[in-house]
Every structure is written in C-alpha cells, then in structure tokens.
Design a binder for these strands. Structure first.
Lengths: 140, 140
DNA sequence: ATTATTGCAAATCCTTTGCAGTACC
DNA sequence: GGTACTGCAAAGGATTTGCAATAAT
C-alpha cells in the first residue's frame, strides 16, 4: 500500500497550524482507501462501525480541509447534499449519474478537456476546476 | 415580444390540474424576460420591487413546476443554493463561473456535446440532462 | 503548560409542508 | 359552490458555530 499521502497530510496540517489527530486521519484514510462518493453521514457511519467515533462538526471541518488541500473532491448534486471522493492518485475524471438507480460511473475524455481549456482561454480565463456530470438512463 | 410560451404554460398547468394565477405567471415572466441565474430570494425580491408579492412557499412550488415542464433550469453549485434560469428559446449552453467575481459566462460546444453523447451510448446509456461548469480565473 | 481539538447542542440557512383563509372557474 | 391557491409559520435536513471539556506537542 502506498502511504506517501500521510506526509503530505502532515504538511498541510502544519501549514494550517493544525494538529494530527485520529479523527482527521481516519477520515482521510477512509476516503483514500475507498473509491466512491460519500456524503458526510455515510463516512461517519462507516467509521462508527470500525469503532472510530467522529462527530459531524469534526467531519465537516475535516472535509473542508481535505478539499482545500486537494486530498478530496466535493460534489453537490441538485438534491443539495455534498458528496466527497478521493482525489489523490486518482486520475482526473467526470461523472455519469444514472437517474433511476443513482449509480455513478466515471468517465474521462482528453478531447473534452482540451476543448474546454481552449474555450476558457478564448475568453481570457484559465480553468481552476470544473464540474461535468451526465445524468443518464439505461438504453432499453 | 414573443409571448407564445404563455400557451405552453397554460397547457402545463392544465396537465397538472393547476390554475393560472398571478404569482405563478409572474415568476415565469420574470425568468423568461431576464437572462441570468437567480436564486429564489432574488426572484422574490425583484417581484416585490414591482409590487408583486410572492411567498417563498409559492415561489419554490412554482419553480419546481417550471423545471418539470422545461421552462427553466435549476443549477446547484457547491454552496448548496439552487439557482434558476430561463430555458425557453434559449439555445442550450453551459456555464463558466468566475471564482473571483461570481460572473457567469455561457458557452456551448457542439464537439463536446457530441463526444459526451458517444461516451454515454458507449456504456449503454442515453443522456437525459447534463451539467458542465468551468470554474475560472481571469488570466493576468 | 500551552494551544488546538473534540463533541455536543444550539444556531443557521435553504427548502418543504400543514393549515386556515382566499381566489379562481 | 367546489376545488385549488396563497401566505404564514412551523418543520425539516444539511451544514456551521460557540463553548466547555479533552488531547496533542
């Protein structure tokens, strides 16, 4: 297992004048070890099953931090609920979401990436991040 | 001015067994006459300035309806706040959002549209709707 | 020892819902 | 006249915040 992200995490904490705690680390660890898209409650529930107690307050505070330092990605769908996913070592990708089942499938197109860069540049901007979600149904 | 959307609106209302009321119509009218992306409160504030009183309850109920019948589009950013925009007669487009100023610029790329259709088809799905947002900064 | 952390419960914010009075057909 | 509408205020659900007890360096 590649644990090099731990040092990066410690550095981020130092930069923010924060301490390395079990709660913070557990959340990071959960996300880096699990592919998938989790809302705050799911993360807390999972950790609870493993005898690690984290409050919502701490979870949200930690998730904000992880997003800020690029350890994870936040996505908010139309239901207004934030979902988080590992971003470390994960190749960049976007999401296809099945309207019927809620299943999330990842996709990535270098062509699209290039075109959107060009579009932004054209208008005098550079892309900091982007959201690209396809809401789909199975072809019957 | 093209007011043909009024009939479409009346038909939608009939289909839902709903009545044509001033509040509902005012919201539709505001969105069709104004390009832009408005949250619920902004819409209510604007209408209030024009002496039209609409409650939040009614506004949200109406906006849901307008989305359902494709009169407008709902978008939720990471802040969790829903924004609505006119969809009628508007050529399809996506959004570039300036991180610093909040300015929203529209864009549209037929190439991207085609590629994403192909990606979905490839996995056995068809696209019902999509969200494509570029978060950008001005090139300095 | 000092300084930041945690969890709790209360507070916020956006959105939804129940209900009594009001408006449309 | 009957059925649907509106606004209000209360309820809901996700997220944030203040604070006293607790843990990290």
């Amino acid at each position: 297992m590649n644990n090099s992200y731990i040092n990066g995490f410690k550095e981020a904490l130092k930069k923010e004048n924060l301490k390395f705690t079990n709660q913070r680390f557990s959340i990071l660890q959960f996300l880096t070890n699990n592919d998938g898209h989790y809302d705050c409650d799911s993360i807390i529930d999972y950790l609870k099953k493993n005898k690690i107690k984290v409050s919502k307050a701490t979870a949200y505070r930690t998730l904000d931090l992880l997003v800020k330092y690029d350890f994870c990605r936040k996505m908010v769908l139309d239901d207004g609920i934030a979902r988080y996913e590992n971003k470390l070592d994960a190749t960049h990708h976007d999401h296809m979401i099945c309207i019927d089942t809620g299943k999330i499938i990842e996709f990535m197109s270098p062509e699209i990436e290039k075109i959107q860069d060009d579009i932004a540049k054209d208008k005098g901007y550079k892309i900091i991040k982007h959201v690209h979600q396809l809401f789909v149904k199975k072809i019957s």
